[in-house]
Design a binder for these strands. Structure first.
Lengths: 184, 184
DNA sequence: CGCTAAAAGCAACTATTGTTGCGTTACTAG
DNA sequence: CTAGTAACGCAACAATAGTTGCTTTTAGCG
């Protein structure tokens, strides 16, 4: 994706490839998408795609990783609980979009092997949120991963129909219910 | 996989294909395994594979689904907590094997689209365990999914190095810690 | 502007994947 | 044991994926 000419034609190509990947992954599932297909849909020469990304794996992962903008503002309401609630709702909303869900499932397939992991940014954000409150934090990062992130992601991947708007708040309620100690 | 001649040569083919898939998925990750590759490794004609399963997706999913025998005995110790502990340890152990982890990641990729979901059996077992104790159950199936299954599966897929022998007991401790009410 | 080189396009090619028709093997029912 | 047929193997073929060398366009910079 790094590119010494980020503007003009390159940008246009990138944009249309992105769009094509998203459409195709949603339509057919990641497993049934190929580079020639993407190139045709994007109105771009397959060679350009091969040369920029090398293979499908890399390309889709790359596109998936940056779909939820890592630069976006992170909730900052004053309490950890409210921050996490806001943040979790955002994630649920994001993955309620079938495109994003499909990209996540694709990312899961290559999670063990490649460097790029499409949830890396999410975990970094969780860390920031908790650490912001230092000693006052009543839950640990591990607890956030285990009982907030994991259930959401699990459901997105395997039980997408079980997600609803209040999935996030339900999980938060449980997470904070017992004012549990921060041991993992 | 249904086959009107389950014995003899067919069985041998099935067995060697299974083995080949497991080896290759572990070696190269599911995304980089192809049917011709599997056939060659198995010492079988590619045509046989194409005719039996149709495509890679179906084949791998089929093989992954039955790797943790659905017929195996389910823990029955007398208390829900002990049963779940035993059961969760089994799952962690199972997925600590890189072959199984790789197959799971593969299954995730096609979870949204196909009928066959390689965790279906796991969820059925969770239901059985909890329902066995009826009203006495202090945790709900949903809680087991959210706070026991989900964290394990999430870590298998995205953070395999973070799994250890006591991951299961840690999660069980948290699940039962507050004698939480069985609301989800 | 006008250079320079990075990135895109094109075309010919190779390699791999997937299909089909047909002969062969060998499982299973009787 | 035998007949019937399901599943396998083989070979030729078709379709698709990926590579390479070269030309054309054009972003970025003085």
């Amino acid at each position: 994706m790094q590119n010494k000419r980020p503007g003009g034609r390159s940008a246009a190509v990138l944009h249309s490839v992105k769009l094509a990947v998203e459409e195709l992954v949603e339509e057919r599932g990641r497993e049934r998408v190929t580079i020639p297909m993407v190139a045709e849909r994007a109105g771009v020469n397959p060679t350009s795609v091969y040369r920029r990304w090398g293979d499908l794996q890399t390309m889709i992962n790359d596109i998936a990783t940056y779909r939820l903008d890592p630069q976006r503002p992170i909730p900052e309401t004053g309490t950890l609980r409210a921050d996490l609630t806001e943040w979790a709702r955002e994630i649920v909303t994001h993955y309620s979009n079938p495109v994003n869900a499909a990209l996540l499932r694709g990312g899961a397939a290559s999670a063990g092997e490649t460097e790029s992991d499409c949830l890396r940014n999410r975990r970094a954000e969780a860390g920031m949120l908790v650490e912001r409150y230092g000693e006052d934090a009543t839950v640990s990062v591990d607890q956030v991963i285990n009982h907030l992130v994991a259930p959401i992601i699990y459901r997105v991947i395997f039980l997408p129909w079980s997600l609803s708007d209040d999935t996030a708040v339900g999980l938060i309620d449980e997470l904070f219910s017992a004012e549990r100690s921060a041991a993992s």
